[in-house]
Design a protein around this nucleic acid. Structure first.
Lengths: 80, 80
DNA sequence: GTGTGACTTGTAGTCCGTA
DNA sequence: CTACGGACTACAAGTCACA
């Protein structure tokens, strides 16, 4: 667990939704967290915590992940 | 100036585009950087550097800005 | 293959200015 | 009103061992 930061309920939901969306597209691509991590040049556990909505990811990393999933970053924010 | 970080050309362009998009919507809303900063609960100088593409903004703040501009965060990533 | 806690380092983000 | 600098503080980035 990370989440020392006190986010509002709305922000927590926002991050959770984002994580779920990433997971959704990842499984569509038939990728494990490990493989996505490798493709995005990020750490396996980092991807995991992002998917769980524990991280306030920056747009550069969001872009990296989107690229590895063959989608646009805006696709990942659609739920918001 | 901040920008010590060595981003790739692609990433720099990504951040610049994002900044320009924010500026575009901000002027559409007839807001100054100061007013947008106040509405988003962010710093005046921070908004400025984001618009100049000097910052790798996090998704929470992207969401805050989008909300203040009455648009969805995905609208801000359209160019990417 | 994934979840989690603990940790260090870099930078996101704040606040004071000047032009 | 905006760009930009210096000097901070808070937190994202990134890694690890172990369940």
């Amino acid at each position: 667990m990370r989440m020392k930061t006190a986010y509002s309920e709305e922000e927590k939901r926002f991050l959770r939704d984002l994580g779920n969306t990433i997971k959704h597209y990842r499984t569509l691509c038939d990728l494990s967290q490990e493989k996505l991590a490798f493709a995005s040049n990020l750490d396996r556990t980092y991807i995991g915590s992002v998917e769980r909505g524990e991280r306030n990811i920056s747009v550069i990393n969001l872009n990296k992940i989107a690229t590895s999933l063959n989608i646009k970053p805006s696709e990942l924010m659609k739920t918001a």
